[in-house]
Computed example of a mutant assay.
Amino acid sequence: MKNIFWYGMASEKKIEYLEKFSVGIIGSRMLMELLWRSGVGCIRYIGDFLTPVDARIDSTVKPLEANDYDVVHPMSTDSCIISYPYPEDYTEFKRQLKGIDVIIAHKHVNRAARVAEELGVPFIPEIITTFLPDGVSFFDVRYDRPEHDPISYALTCSLQAGEIVRIFTGYQLPVIAPEAYVVDFDEPGYLKKIELKKKD
């Protein structure tokens, strides 16, 4: 499936190379599903308590799963999906993400960004941009947290999955902070380019 999914974006060899990478995802089951279907080797998924709002926005969450803790299971015999509950202890949170190549967080963003900086790995928050270990720090910039509906959330997750593939395959460059994009239906192509502002 993954070869069809990325047909034309990267060579088959590069697509197979995705299996060598691991991604840490905090609080986005939709993104986890997309990356699993894309062929990313190992996904460590840190779930959180699912609210009714989560179930309305993320179409991969069933409504009856609301008001419970988010746990996912391996999708196939050859998949590597490790699911953890979100820990309150910072040391445990960092341990869960150790050895990951990229961290993406839609929940507990500040904490995940801190771990990414300490581990020296790229970090993707809930907008479309990547903070590199030797680049602009997540904590040096500010942006308005996006408001999501089911469609804008699905588009954001899809674009972030594409950014991950760019990082891992070298097919074009991902969007690097302080440049960023957000989904905006008032814009042509539904994407609005924003410049992350430095904190005062």
Results as ranks from 00 to 15, higher is better:
K197I: 13
Y17C: 05
V141I: 15
M32S: 01
D144M: 06
L64Q: 06
F131D: 05
E65W: 04
P87D: 13
S137H: 05
A55N: 06
D48F: 04
R29D: 00
D149A: 08
V102Q: 08
T129P: 04
I128W: 07
E147H: 09
Q160K: 15
C42V: 03
Y90R: 12
K62V: 01
I194S: 07
G170A: 13
V136D: 00
P133W: 07
I194P: 03
I167A: 13
P63I: 12
V23E: 01
I25N: 02
S79N: 09
I100V: 15
G170F: 12
G99Q: 10
F123A: 08
Y190W: 12
S38A: 15
S83F: 00
T130S: 10
V53D: 15
Y190H: 12
Y69V: 11
P146K: 10
W36C: 01
S22G: 06
F123Q: 10
E92W: 02
P85V: 06
V23H: 00
F93K: 12
K14N: 12
Q96I: 14
G120C: 11
F139G: 05
K20E: 02
L155Q: 12
Y7I: 13
E147T: 13
R114C: 02
A112N: 03
M9D: 02
G120D: 07
S28I: 03
E118Q: 10
C80N: 09
L97H: 03
P87V: 13
E19T: 05
W6L: 15
D54R: 04
L191K: 06
M1L: 07
M75C: 02
G189W: 09
D184P: 10
R44N: 10
Y17S: 14
G8D: 12
F123L: 09
A112F: 05
Y45I: 02
L155F: 14
T169W: 09
I176G: 10
I15Y: 02
K94W: 03
I100F: 00
S59M: 11
V40I: 15
V136L: 11
L132Q: 09
I104T: 09
I26M: 11
V115P: 05
K198D: 02
V165T: 14
Y7G: 04
K94E: 15
L35P: 03
F131E: 05
A177E: 05
I81S: 00
I151Q: 08
D70C: 10
I82H: 02
I15E: 01
E147V: 14
I57F: 05
I128P: 09
D144I: 11
Y90F: 15
R114T: 13
I103M: 03
K193I: 02
Q172D: 13
K193L: 08
G8Y: 03
I127P: 05
V141H: 02
G41N: 07
L50D: 04
K198P: 01
D200E: 11
E187C: 11
F138Y: 15
R95F: 06
D144N: 15
S59F: 11
P74D: 00
